[in-house]
Amino acid sequence: MLSGLRRAVRSRLGADQPRLGADDRGVTLAELMVSMILTTILGTMAVLFFVGSSSAGYKSVLTNQNSGDARLTLDSWTSMLRVAGWLDPSIKADRFEEVTSTKIVFYANLGNRATNVSGSFTAPAATTKIALMLRVSNTSTGVGQLIEVVFEPDNTTVRSVRQLGFNAKATAGLPVFQPYSRIGSALDLTQLGCLNGTTPTPGLCLQSGQPGSGMPDPSIGAGSLAVSSGNLRGNPAHNVDTALNQIGSVAIAFTALDPSNTSSMAFTSLASVSSGFPS
């Protein structure tokens, strides 16, 4: 029957028309299925490549931004520590109020940085109370946020709270803040110089609070940036006021992580604060 159909078609087309060959009869179902499968595979590969490239690019942007934030944080904190000043210059015993492995509370001459070009005398401004800290939000990894608190002249009212680093931790078990004495010796932060309520706690906490010192142990809540007084106080049984008075420099060390915690970069700096000691 098919042969008769082909002869009829050829006779109607004429002798000069080419004969219908096997290639002129379309594609089979199997060929169509193979073609669709190959097209699907190639399309999927293209989509996966595009998504992967976009994800890698986004991750690179976030990593660079996080590293940039960490670098700016280190510069800012080093600059503040370099102008650390006395709350009461007459006794020179209250420049540093608290130093633990993850927090430092001190007073700085932020208001005395401007240069007077008029030649007239300007009385020095009061020192500014500052708290710098790593707020650990994941106790299993030690990862948290780098936070800076600056107070108004009354040292109780908060002027600003800045979250400068969003994914940071201590570097290889080192303290984020390591104070050194005037002769360069590292001060022992494991000594029980603080009281957490009634419990002796490692750190250096000023025992003799001065008038006007403001909020003691400024702390940040776990779920917000609200600042309130913490529980750390000086330990009368382990007075470290002399050690705090002898701080001549502070090393800062922390590690910044990318959002997926797959890569990291360590940052370190040393701020000299040795000026202004009594002779």
Rank of each mutant, 00 (worst) to 15 (best):
F277V: 12
L225K: 14
E31N: 06
N196C: 06
E97V: 05
D69H: 11
G223V: 09
N235R: 02
G14H: 07
K103V: 05
V83W: 08
Q65H: 15
S140Y: 08
Y107N: 06
A170R: 08
R71K: 15
V117Y: 13
T39K: 14
N245Y: 01
F254S: 02
N196M: 05
N109G: 10
L232I: 11
S60N: 15
I37L: 09
G203A: 02
L146A: 03
Y58F: 12
L244C: 00
N245A: 04
Y180T: 07
V117P: 05
S181E: 04
S181L: 10
G214E: 00
L146I: 13
S118I: 11
S274M: 11
A243S: 03
S35E: 04
I220W: 01
T44S: 08
T63I: 04
S264E: 01
R82C: 00
S76N: 09
E97G: 03
D258A: 04
A253E: 07
S249P: 13
N239S: 09
F177G: 01
A271K: 08
L62C: 12
F151N: 00
A123G: 11
T139N: 08
T128K: 07
T39Y: 15
T44P: 04
G14M: 01
L74I: 10
L257R: 03
S224D: 02
Q191F: 02
C194L: 06
M80L: 00
L187Y: 09
A108K: 03
P200F: 12
N64M: 15
F106Y: 09
A266G: 04
A108T: 04
T242N: 02
G119L: 08
S137R: 12
P18Q: 07
T115G: 03
L110P: 00
L244P: 00
A222V: 09
I247D: 01
I41D: 12
S140W: 07
S53R: 12
G203R: 06
P153T: 02
A125T: 11
R135F: 03
K59T: 15
M33F: 08
V149E: 01
Y107V: 06
M215H: 08
N109Y: 14
V149G: 04
R182W: 08
I91F: 10
G14S: 09
L174K: 07
T139F: 14
P153R: 11
P200I: 09
V143A: 14
K169T: 15
P124H: 04
A93G: 15
V117F: 08
A30Q: 13
L42H: 10
S229P: 02
R12Y: 13
L74V: 13
G234Q: 01
Q17N: 14
Q246W: 13
G144N: 01
T201V: 01
Q210R: 14
M45I: 14
S60T: 06
A123E: 08
V161C: 02
Y107D: 03
A186H: 07
S181C: 11
V99L: 05
R135K: 07
R95W: 08
V150G: 01
G165T: 07
N66K: 14
T78P: 00
G193F: 05
S120P: 11
I183S: 14
N116G: 07
R25A: 02
S90T: 10
L187V: 04
D241G: 06
R95Q: 06
G234K: 06
S229W: 04
F277D: 09
R135C: 02
A168I: 12
L174Q: 03
I147F: 01
Q163V: 10
P200R: 04
F254L: 00
D23E: 11
A226R: 15
N261P: 10
S3T: 12
A271D: 01
V27G: 10
